[in-house]
Design a protein around this nucleic acid. Structure first.
Length: 486
RNA sequence: GGUCCCAUCGUCUAGUGGCCUAGGACGUGGCCCUCUCAAGGCUAAAACACGGGUUCGACUCCCGUUGGGACCGCCA
């Protein structure tokens, strides 16, 4: 217990910029932060990085929050917004300029772009040439060339070591470091600076983010030092790739978290899939949230990037659907039934009946969309025959059996699966045929197709009235097509 | 181009020098079960990128090569 007391409170954050939907990569970063916080009993903070006012929108902030909520990743503080904190950043920047740790730069974006292109053309590393670095105060052409931007003075010799919980120790030569702009000429601060200030202010102990930020880290380390603050621990997660091994993006198909909700995925299935991209716990594939929180550790996070594999996600989703109580599934499938036009919005639903129907279908559905679609013949008033199934099973051969079955079912009081089975078995035995010879035609008559759950349970759920009606229709269909041929 | 990261079946991964004839999962093929379709069970094919070291012994450690990725912005 003493050891527990000595441990500092873990504080982590997820800091997306609201320039798009919450996507798969961001969601996984959020998830690992959340898991670590929950595992350590620490705090998980949501912070919106919206310093780029031209690309950030309130709609995207809402979208990100919606995505987080759908995934059930709850946060303890925030969402904080950086646009509310510009005064804070400015005071820190003033201090750095005052101390000579940052300086004004009068180079225009156009000039910089030109020099950058020249450097690339010569095969050199594009890097700020330090033109304004040693300019004396007042020596600049302030006023004549507009407002200055503020650059941070990076050390030009020695090395910077990033001690990463995942990548280990990573060494950078300081000569590679650029004097980066920390405040634009319009007075707004830039990412690499505000990240540090915010992480300091919010007492973040562990910075967990994508490894696309690894190259930024030495720069940020120097900002921590210039500000005189202690550094957090870093953990840089490997990227998620598309099937072509390039960083996952829109062109790889559905990448927003919400798209998966609309495709009929369960949030727990997505979470389970995402966590296994780069993390493992022996041979275990399926985890409850409690498992994940209990087992999560950076020691078992891999170093290499992972290809996103929709098939495995789908398999996991089918596992989750199969193992979700039908009553819950009933509630979840309603929006999809509405979308499919099987249910008008606001209409009352018989949840008991729907749950029973779902129980017969849930181990056959990979998504909620499929589940909704497969409910059609239970819910609809009428069925349409699939052409192939109709030709194969609704014909002269099956006609007498269908007629006999209908006659036997009319007086049946207890329209339950066991009773129905007895009726079927009696007919089958009487004629010395296989069950399939009767069940398949009935299946087509009732569901329209040749595939469905067990025929007895299907009939029970469809009910006596609809069953008789559909048998009648099938008999008429066969008779009329036979008549045509004659 | 420079810097940095990474490298086990098609994909996600186990593996921390002998337990490896390299294990599991998805996907793929076959068989079983069976009223169809699923689910489930069994089973098959399928990988340590390459080359050097180190070591009695390397998938495991070191170096190089190759390949992939990320970053190099008054974007985040």
């Amino acid at each position: 217990m003493l050891e527990e007391d000595a441990k500092i409170m873990v504080r982590v954050r997820f800091a997306p910029s609201p320039t798009g939907q919450l996507h798969i990569g961001g969601a996984r970063t959020a998830l690992f932060n959340w898991l670590f916080a929950r595992h350590e009993g620490g705090a998980f903070i949501l912070r919106i990085e919206d310093t780029d006012r031209s690309r950030s929108t309130d709609e995207y902030i809402e979208a990100i929050i919606e995505g987080m909520k759908w995934l059930n990743l709850d946060w303890d503080e925030g969402p904080y917004r950086q646009t509310n904190r510009f005064d804070v950043y400015r005071s820190y920047i003033d201090r750095l300029v005052q101390e000579g740790k940052a300086y004004k730069c009068y180079c225009s974006p156009e000039e910089l772009e030109q020099r950058r292109q020249e450097a690339v053309a010569k095969g050199k590393t594009p890097k700020y040439d330090g033109r304004c670095r040693d300019m004396q105060r007042g020596q600049g052409v302030e006023g004549s060339r507009g407002q200055a931007a503020i650059r941070f003075r990076m050390p030009q010799d020695g090395q910077t070591v990033v001690n990463d919980m995942i990548k280990g120790s990573v060494v950078f030569e300081n000569t590679q470091l650029d004097d980066l702009i920390i405040m634009r000429s319009d007075g707004t601060p830039t990412y690499n600076f505000v990240v540090v200030v915010d992480d300091v202010d919010m007492k973040i102990t562990h910075v967990i983010r994508g490894d696309d930020h690894l190259n930024n880290t030495p720069k940020q380390i120097h900002i921590y030092k210039a500000l005189g603050y202690e550094m957090p621990q870093f953990a840089h997660l490997p990227m998620i790739l598309g099937s072509d091994k390039a960083r996952l993006s829109k062109r790889h198909g559905a990448t927003s978290v919400m798209a998966y909700r609309d495709l009929g995925y369960l949030p727990d299935a997505l979470v389970n899939y995402l966590v296994r991209l780069g993390w493992s716990y022996g041979d275990q594939e399926v985890f409850t949230r409690e498992d994940l929180i209990k087992y999560f550790s950076f020691e078992s996070v891999g170093k290499s990037s992972a290809v996103f594999n929709p098939e495995k996600l789908q398999w996991l989703n089918s596992q989750y659907i199969m193992n979700t109580p039908s009553e819950r599934l009933a509630g979840l499938v309603i929006p999809f039934l509405v979308k499919e036009g099987m249910l008008s919005e606001g209409r009352e639903v018989d949840y008991d009946w729907l749950s029973k129907a779902i129980t017969t279908l849930k181990e056959r559905a990979k998504t909620l969309v499929e589940l909704a679609a497969s409910l059609r013949y239970y819910i609809a008033d009428d069925v349409e025959y699939q052409e192939k199934a109709k030709i194969k099973f609704l014909n002269d051969k099956s006609l007498p059996y269908l007629m006999e079955l209908k006659e036997e079912l009319v007086p049946l009081e207890d329209f339950s699966a066991p009773e129905l089975e007895k009726v079927f078995k009696a007919i089958v035995e009487k004629h010395g045929i296989k069950l399939g010879n009767l069940a398949q035609p009935v299946r087509v008559a009732i569901t329209g197709g040749a595939e469905s759950p067990g025929i007895f349970e299907v009939l029970e759920i469809v009910g006596k009235e609809k069953t008789l009606k559909r048998l009648e229709k099938a008999i008429k269909t066969i008779e009329s097509s036979a008549g045509k041929e004659a």
